[in-house]
């Protein structure tokens, strides 16, 4: 589409709009009830794909900003997290670290994607995997501090690994398709010069 592939003028509001709309996108991923993927019978909530996609699609700066915005609005009381959760409680809970880790997820995924001229699937896969790992790097010690036992926290977190691995792959595939559908929208020189 003309509007997306070719920015018409350098509008400072374009960045603001992308940040806001992507924050809303991550919220919408949480509003939609889980997906039943494969034959697992367990609904998979897609929201934690959001920060990975934010970094992989918008790049480090805007992706991180959109995650920070989402978390800030959640903290002031809007029910933007999956299951309609919001307020300060989700941050105060044992999994609060995983939420804060989203910021680094978007940052790291974005930084990796920006290094590639035309991000292909391998780069994106690397980006989303690294993004998830930094989320764990914040979330697990936080949980450990909460429970007073880091090892136990790590063991507990193993439950999420299979689902998250699937989401890392899905996020990379989705980001690759979006980059192909809208070349130049996302990261890379085309947008940085916007």
């Amino acid at each position: 589409m003309r509007r997306v592939s070719a920015p018409r003028a350098s509008l400072p509001t374009a960045d603001l709009a992308r940040i806001v709309v992507f924050a809303a996108f991550i919220a919408v991923l949480g509003i939609f009830p889980g997906f039943y993927v494969g034959g697992s019978g367990v609904p998979i909530v897609l929201q934690n794909m959001g920060p990975l996609l934010a970094g992989a699609i918008l790049g480090a700066r805007r992706g991180t900003a959109s995650v920070v915005l989402l978390l800030a609005l959640t903290a002031i009381g809007l029910p933007l997290l999956s299951g309609g959760r919001g307020g300060l409680a989700p941050f105060a809970g044992p999994s609060g670290g995983f939420l804060l880790g989203w910021i680094l997820s978007a940052l790291v995924a974005g930084l990796i994607v920006q290094r590639a001229e035309r991000p292909g699937l391998p780069t994106l896969l690397l980006a989303t995997t690294a993004g998830l790992l930094v989320d764990y790097a914040i979330g697990i010690p936080f949980l450990g501090a909460y429970t007073g036992d880091l090892g136990a926290a790590a063991v507990q977190s193993l439950v999420f690994v299979p689902g998250d691995a699937g989401k890392v792959v899905a996020a990379a595939v989705v980001a690759a398709l979006v980059h192909r559908a809208l070349p130049g929208t996302a990261t890379g020189p085309a947008v940085r010069s916007e």
Binding site: M1, R3, V4, P7, R8, L11, T13, A14, D15, L16, A17, R18, V20, V21, F22, A24, F25, V28, F35, V37, L46, M49, L53, I57, A170, V173, V174, L177, V178, A181, L182, T185
Partner: peptide, 21 residues
Amino acid sequence: VTAFAVPLLVRTLRHADELGE
């Protein structure tokens, strides 16, 4: 997930461009 997320993202980004304007 792709059939849901890809078109949603494309339209999300398009909406962002319109909102920016």
